[in-house]
Amino acid sequence: MLVAAALGSLAGARAPPWMAWLLGFRRSLVVSVTVSALSYLVVAAVPWWPLVALMPAATGAGVVLWNVCTVSLRQRPAPPGMLGRVTSGYRVAAWGTPPLGVPLGGALAKEAGPDATWAAAGLLLGCLPLLRRMASTPSEPAGKHAAAAKTDDRMEC
């Protein structure tokens, strides 16, 4: 399953530039969350081991799409002198919260039991309305190059 996740991530790494160009960032993020949620739903609904073993590939592809697009959305509006701080702040939040999420996920899995995959998919799908409030394109970069920046919705990641 780890190999499937890695292969899905590698295959998914080719998608973000054209997905963001074709769909825009917001829709690309919706696709990434939906793909991950659907992979959990497949595991819950069809617990046949060959299919379950392939679902981490779909999740891996969705996670890579999310990561590439969110990094682009975060870095574009950051002033060049602040980019390191913006990235560091994000990493503190991204890597500092798993110690809180792991016990919460364990408690959810304990309470939900075999239905934990349904709960995980529900949580992911429940986050989709939050993406509706997000801008589809990143803000203009700050600084003297702001006038030259692309503002088209179909930007590259």
Rank of each mutant, 00 (worst) to 15 (best):
residue 116 A to Y: 05
residue 110 K to E: 14
residue 110 K to L: 15
residue 91 R to I: 10
residue 79 P to M: 01
residue 150 K to C: 11
residue 12 G to I: 01
residue 88 S to R: 09
residue 121 A to F: 04
residue 132 R to M: 14
residue 119 A to E: 06
residue 131 L to W: 09
residue 67 N to A: 08
residue 85 R to W: 01
residue 54 L to W: 04
residue 89 G to M: 12
residue 53 A to M: 12
residue 111 E to L: 14
residue 34 T to A: 12
residue 35 V to C: 05
residue 7 L to G: 00
residue 24 G to F: 01
residue 28 S to G: 12
residue 87 T to R: 00
residue 2 L to S: 04
residue 26 R to S: 03
residue 139 S to W: 03
residue 2 L to H: 07
residue 50 P to V: 12
residue 62 G to E: 07
residue 126 G to C: 09
residue 67 N to P: 12
residue 121 A to D: 09
residue 114 P to E: 10
residue 37 A to I: 02
residue 62 G to D: 05
residue 107 A to Y: 13
residue 116 A to I: 07
residue 111 E to A: 15
residue 137 T to V: 14
residue 139 S to G: 12
residue 6 A to Y: 06
residue 53 A to Y: 06
residue 126 G to Q: 04
residue 152 D to H: 12
residue 137 T to G: 14
residue 3 V to F: 13
residue 44 A to E: 04
residue 7 L to I: 13
residue 138 P to D: 13
residue 100 L to Q: 02
residue 106 G to C: 06
residue 59 T to A: 12
residue 90 Y to H: 08
residue 137 T to N: 10
residue 137 T to Y: 09
residue 35 V to R: 00
residue 65 L to F: 07
residue 137 T to D: 08
residue 24 G to K: 02
residue 73 L to S: 06
residue 106 G to A: 14
residue 95 W to Y: 15
residue 88 S to V: 07
residue 155 M to C: 08
residue 151 T to M: 10
residue 52 V to Y: 01
residue 40 Y to K: 04
residue 36 S to M: 13
residue 95 W to T: 05
residue 109 A to Q: 08
residue 32 S to T: 08
residue 34 T to K: 02
residue 48 W to V: 15
residue 131 L to A: 11
residue 111 E to V: 15
residue 7 L to C: 02
residue 61 A to T: 09
residue 26 R to Q: 05
residue 37 A to W: 01
residue 38 L to W: 00
residue 144 K to G: 13
residue 16 P to K: 01
residue 152 D to Y: 00
residue 98 P to H: 03
residue 126 G to H: 06
residue 77 P to E: 04
residue 62 G to L: 05
residue 146 A to V: 04
residue 56 P to N: 12
residue 106 G to L: 13
residue 130 L to Y: 06
residue 140 E to K: 10
residue 128 L to S: 11
residue 59 T to E: 03
residue 5 A to S: 11
residue 24 G to Q: 01
residue 86 V to I: 13
residue 66 W to L: 10
residue 131 L to H: 05
residue 123 L to A: 12
residue 13 A to S: 14
residue 41 L to G: 04
residue 10 L to K: 00
residue 8 G to W: 02
residue 135 A to I: 11
residue 74 R to H: 06
residue 21 W to F: 02
residue 121 A to W: 01
residue 65 L to V: 06
residue 152 D to P: 03
residue 63 V to E: 03
residue 154 R to S: 08
residue 36 S to C: 15
residue 92 V to G: 08
residue 8 G to A: 04
residue 43 V to P: 04
residue 90 Y to K: 07
residue 57 A to H: 08
residue 101 G to M: 05
residue 44 A to C: 11
residue 137 T to S: 14
residue 13 A to H: 01
residue 121 A to I: 06
residue 15 A to Y: 02
residue 62 G to C: 09
residue 140 E to V: 06
residue 53 A to K: 15
residue 129 P to V: 03
residue 56 P to Q: 02
residue 93 A to R: 03
residue 3 V to K: 09
residue 156 E to H: 10
residue 17 P to L: 02
residue 93 A to T: 14
residue 124 L to F: 07
residue 157 C to W: 03
residue 82 M to S: 12
residue 49 W to K: 07
residue 70 T to L: 03
residue 59 T to V: 07
residue 73 L to K: 05
residue 108 L to A: 07
residue 62 G to T: 11
residue 35 V to Y: 00
residue 79 P to I: 04
residue 58 A to G: 08
residue 87 T to Y: 00
residue 150 K to A: 14
residue 17 P to Q: 10
residue 46 V to M: 03
residue 123 L to N: 12
residue 112 A to R: 05
residue 139 S to D: 15
residue 151 T to Y: 00
residue 85 R to N: 06
